[in-house]
């Protein structure tokens, strides 16, 4: 059964001093793909500045805002309504030739085609000492290994908000064994890529109605390219495969390609920003 979703994203920004010039770019619109459609977007800001809809360098929809007068406070509010088809994550062919799959990921053409999602980035760089991390068992299928990795991340790391930042390095996360969805996703991406599996960082919303873990803002999970199957979503924060509750906005190499809000603010002094995301779904 498809779901009718309604998502509200709002953010409030207050500044101690006047802001004379500012630019924002939001990367928060659910993407149109074969399970997400009829996307309706409403976006407004409290200063009535132009909301400039555009597409970023990676091909995802953005909204840019540039107020033409100075301000101390600005609110943004977005509402998205759309249809999300029911996803059965296990719906893929079972007659996979496993040795062929392992062979394919070693081929140069494969590596070239998926190069960006095999590359190690600042946020997905593994420490030199690899003893304590998950290792693939090559007698299992790629899919099974990734499921195990998902489970390993879930079991070994504790969800705790506030201990890490958006630019936290994997070495810190591995040593503290704590973090949030971004950190688990970065770790998952790094280990999967280390094993030759093209893996991308996904940013989106999570419908928490069914007890899934998130932090009421944007959620993150990973997508892996498995030969003969295609891209598959893994949510290491919840040890599930991405399903009807995962609403995708965009993907990239890591958080830096996907940050939901980029802002350039010409001001000094303190500022305060709050975000809230509400996801509401209704089965049709």
């Amino acid at each position: 059964m498809p779901n009718q979703y309604k998502i509200t994203y709002s953010t409030e920004n207050t500044y101690e001093n006047w802001v004379n010039n500012a630019y924002w770019q939001f990367l928060i619109i659910p993407m149109e793909n074969n399970t997400q459609h009829h996307i309706d977007v409403e976006f407004s800001n409290s200063l009535f500045a132009v909301n400039d809809f555009s597409i970023n360098g990676y091909g995802f929809k953005t909204i840019r805002v540039h107020p033409k007068k100075k301000f101390k406070k600005i609110n943004f509010e977005a509402q998205f309504s759309f249809i999300k088809d029911h996803i059965d994550p296990f719906n893929f062919p079972l007659d996979i030739n496993d040795s062929l799959a392992y062979k394919e990921i070693k081929e140069l053409t494969f590596k070239i085609n998926f190069e960006a999602f095999l590359r190690s980035t600042v946020l997905t760089k593994l420490p030199n000492d690899l003893d304590s991390i998950f290792h693939f068992n090559l007698s299992n299928t790629i899919f099974e290994n990734l499921q195990e990795l998902n489970k390993w991340t879930f079991n070994n790391f504790q969800f705790k908000a506030g201990v890490t930042k958006v630019d936290s390095k994997l070495t810190d996360i591995i040593s503290t064994k704590q973090g949030v969805c971004q950190d688990f996703t970065h770790l998952f991406c790094a280990i999967a890529r280390q094993n030759g599996i093209p893996t991308r960082y996904v940013s989106g919303y999570l419908n928490q109605a069914h007890g899934l873990l998130g932090d009421s803002q944007m959620h993150a999970w990973a997508e892996c390219y498995i030969p003969q199957i295609g891209w598959k979503g893994f949510d290491p924060t919840n040890n599930v495969l991405a399903n009807t509750n995962h609403i995708k906005v965009c993907h990239g190499k890591d958080y830096n390609d996907c940050s939901p809000l980029r802002g350039i603010i010409y001001s000094h002094g303190k500022n305060k920003t709050t975000h809230t995301v509400k996801v509401h779904s209704q089965e049709q």
Binding site: Q25, S54, I55, N56, G57, T62, R64, H66, I264
Partner: peptide, 10 residues
Amino acid sequence: VPGLFAAYKK
């Protein structure tokens, strides 16, 4: 220039 790359890409 904020947004320049998007204009270029387009």
